[in-house]
Simulated scan of single mutants.
Amino acid sequence: MLTISRELHDAIVAHARADHPDEACGVVAGPAGTGRPERFIPMLNAARSPTFYEFDSGDLLKLYREMDDRDEEPVVVYHSHTATEAYPSRTDVSYASEPFAHYVLVSTVEGTGPEDPFQFRSFRIVDGEITEEDVQVVEAYEA
């Protein structure tokens, strides 16, 4: 299960909406070994595409060096789908290289209903196998 703060959840959704109609992407880092997402890091979609996302290789290298310096790891890797449901595509699966990360997808497709204007779903992707997991949004993490 992914447990994520309301603040981080809302930041991911806001990023997805702001970058629409292009896909948004980013990382939420957390202290190594904790599995707790804490630091929101929106990234630029180098592909600038409504159907594909790509982290800029230089930005990604900088991010990993920064996380290493701060003793962090990528807890959540997120991106948006602008025309399809929030479910990993074959391309998404092929790029999933963090076996311990939660892969969050947000769909910004119009018309999913006023009660749920977007989909926010989380998956584990290991060796090409997709497993959906529950998402718990909390106001604050327990100490």
Rank of each mutant, 00 (worst) to 15 (best):
S49H: 15
V27D: 01
P31Q: 12
E129H: 10
D92C: 12
M67K: 03
I41T: 10
H81N: 08
G35Q: 11
E23A: 08
G58S: 07
R39L: 10
R65P: 00
R36S: 08
E133F: 00
F100M: 03
S57D: 13
R124C: 02
D19E: 15
R48G: 03
G58E: 07
T34C: 02
G111F: 05
E110V: 06
E129Q: 09
F123W: 01
F118Q: 04
E133T: 14
E23V: 13
I41E: 07
P88G: 10
E98Y: 15
K62Q: 00
V27N: 01
T108M: 10
T34V: 10
R36Q: 14
F55A: 02
A24W: 03
D68Y: 11
T34M: 09
P74R: 08
R121F: 02
A29W: 04
L105Y: 05
G58I: 00
R39P: 00
H79S: 05
F40P: 09
R39W: 12
A101G: 06
E133G: 14
I130C: 04
E115L: 13
T91D: 10
A47I: 07
E98F: 15
E98W: 14
A46M: 08
Y95D: 03
E132R: 15
L60D: 03
H102E: 02
L105S: 07
A86M: 11
P117W: 05
I41Y: 06
E98A: 11
E72P: 09
R65V: 05
H102I: 04
E66M: 06
E133S: 03
F55G: 01
E98P: 00
V93E: 00
G33K: 09
V93I: 15
E54Y: 04
E132C: 03
V77F: 01
S122M: 01
A86L: 11
